[in-house]
């Protein structure tokens, strides 16, 4: 650890998006039957869960229920609140009427606007009440309903620490903790994840007392629990599976921790699962040092943000064609 003491830049694995067919079906139907040419932004919801496999990261999923219900479906059942496999992430959709409109959107400006929401929620204390607002996302799209193809581009806005945080140490949680602590933390996490009240709360605080007992608390309990823990961890549901890096949601959490709680040394806990249960050898605990510049401390000044998703390493939008399942002519031909 000593040779690492100088530290390297803490790097975060980008979030990945996955959109299922149902999302595009409902978007098309809403566009045709409800929105028409109205292209005002639509609030949508993405879903994610902690990584649950050592070989593949989890991603942000969009499904039909990510969109508002169709006019004919007002009697929709209450969405499964507290579904542990569906932690909601608030997002916004800009669906343009033309391909030109899609390409001419001011992407930097849109990203900044979302970053400002995150920044404001951090400073107003809203993020401590409802931690889901720390991971917003942005989707721009053009639905070509003549060809049944959809052009789209995701952004996961992250506030950029200036200068970047340095990583002092990062290892599997099972190595960082004693056996008793790890067992207690495992049990506490499983309890947190199985209660419908907390199952979809993606950011949390962990304090580990001197008797090795781990307790998980909500962010809003920060002021009351500073004193009691001997070890204190900032935990989040980590969609990333890599043993070498934390996932994207930690970025805005660190922004909250350093700008709102003024911490310079942070122990973070990347919570990951195996087969749906806490796995502390897959989960990571890391120590990061943050020394932000003076300008960062000013709530009026929104920091820089990054987060447009790359498409196979390139800065291009994605496109999907669903003509096979949506085009009535093709459907008629295949049914003949």
């Amino acid at each position: 650890m000593t040779e690492k003491e100088k530290g390297s830049v803490l790097q975060f694995a980008p979030f990945q998006s996955a959109v299922d067919e149902g999302f595009w079906h409902r978007l098309s139907s809403l566009k045709l039957n409800k929105f028409g040419i109205d292209d005002s932004p639509i609030p949508i919801t993405g879903f994610y869960a902690p990584c649950t496999n050592s070989r593949v990261s989890n991603h942000l999923s969009l499904i039909a229920e990510s969109l508002p219900p169709e006019p004919s479906e007002q009697s929709s059942v209450a969405t499964s609140l507290g579904n542990r496999n569906r932690c909601s992430v608030p997002g916004i959709l800009y669906n343009t009427n033309t391909l030109e409109g899609f390409h001419s959107l001011d992407k930097q400006c849109l990203l900044k606007a979302e970053a400002k929401k995150i920044w404001d929620d951090i400073h107003s204390g809203k993020a401590e009440e409802d931690s889901a607002v720390l991971s917003r996302f942005l989707l721009i799209s053009f639905a070509d309903l003549k060809k049944w193809s959809f052009h789209y581009w995701f952004a996961f806005p992250a506030l950029v620490l200036d200068p970047p945080a340095t990583l002092v140490d990062l290892k599997p949680a099972s190595q960082w903790l004693s056996l008793e602590e790890a067992e207690s933390l495992s049990a506490a996490c499983n309890e947190w994840r199985s209660s419908s009240v907390t199952a979809d709360v993606p950011f949390f605080l962990v304090s580990i007392a001197s008797n090795s007992r781990a307790t998980i608390k909500h962010l809003k309990e920060w002021t009351s629990c500073q004193q009691d823990g001997d070890k204190f961890l900032f935990g989040f549901y980590d969609p990333c599976h890599l043993p070498t890096n934390p996932g994207w949601p930690l970025r805005n959490f660190l922004a909250l921790i350093c700008s709102r709680w003024n911490l310079e040394k942070v122990c973070f806990f990347c919570y990951r699962e195996n087969r749906g249960f806490a796995d502390l050898s897959l989960s990571l605990i890391g120590e990061a040092l943050i020394s932000i510049s003076q300008g960062w401390k000013d709530p009026q000044q929104v920091p820089n943000a990054v987060g447009w998703e790359l498409n196979r390493g390139k800065k291009v939008s994605k496109c999907i064609s669903l003509a096979q399942s949506m085009d009535p002519i093709r459907l008629a031909v295949s049914a003949a």
Partner: peptide
């Protein structure tokens, strides 16, 4: 099937869209 879809490469954004951010892991 998608012969109608324009080659996306021509829409590749200028480099300034996605800043080089040292804290983003190049996966």
């Amino acid at each position: 099937e998608e012969e109608d879809i324009p080659d996306m490469a021509e829409y590749e954004e200028p480099d300034n869209l996605i800043e080089t951010d040292p804290a983003t892991l190049q996966s």
